[in-house]
Amino acid sequence: MQGSTVTQSQAELNFSATHSHQIDHHSEHPDHRLFGFVLFLISESMLFVGLFVAYLTYRAVAPVWPPAGTPEVELLLPSINTVILLSSSFVIHQADGAIKKNDVKGMQLWFLATIAMGATFLAGQVYEYAHLEFGLAEGNLFGSTFYVLTGFHGLHVFVGLLLMSLVLWRSRRRGHYSDQKHFGVEATEIYWHFVDVIWIFLFSMLYLLH
């Protein structure tokens, strides 16, 4: 709407309303999707804030943390995983640079690389789950929060992989993404950074400071 409506000629305004919706949906209607998507991520971050605060409260209230008898958490694998996930943020940013130069091939390659890194992270997490000495519901509060928090983050990583695959699938069509039109690429990148930032908090809380 911004600015465009005032300058329209009367002939355009008398244009049949039902048809104009279909025809100039993209040309006339400014794109608010990125704004809406960022609002969604702010909202989504509050889900993690809620879970983090719950964890920190348990930790603050408990006399010993982690509760007595909690096995040590292995650090090496998660640290490698962290490096992979954090570097993937730089990799996906290259995809954004590529599409802004109208280089669809380059964007696809960088997305594929990010998918590979994200999948490695998830595989590492599954391996870690399989080898941990505590389970989800064994009466250990640290164990339960550990699985729910990392599990929720893992779910978000998985959704990120789906989003990237969707962008790749859509980019088969020539001209679907261009230097002018690449909301899908941009939103996926922002989402991936979001997932990374969440992981930084998670990794610090559950592995480094536990």
Partner: peptide, 14 residues
């Protein structure tokens, strides 16, 4: 709604 509802979702999940 944007700020508070997700925390309820978190509580419901737990």
């Amino acid at each position: 709604q944007l700020i508070a509802t997700p925390v309820l979702t978190g509580a419901m999940i737990l």
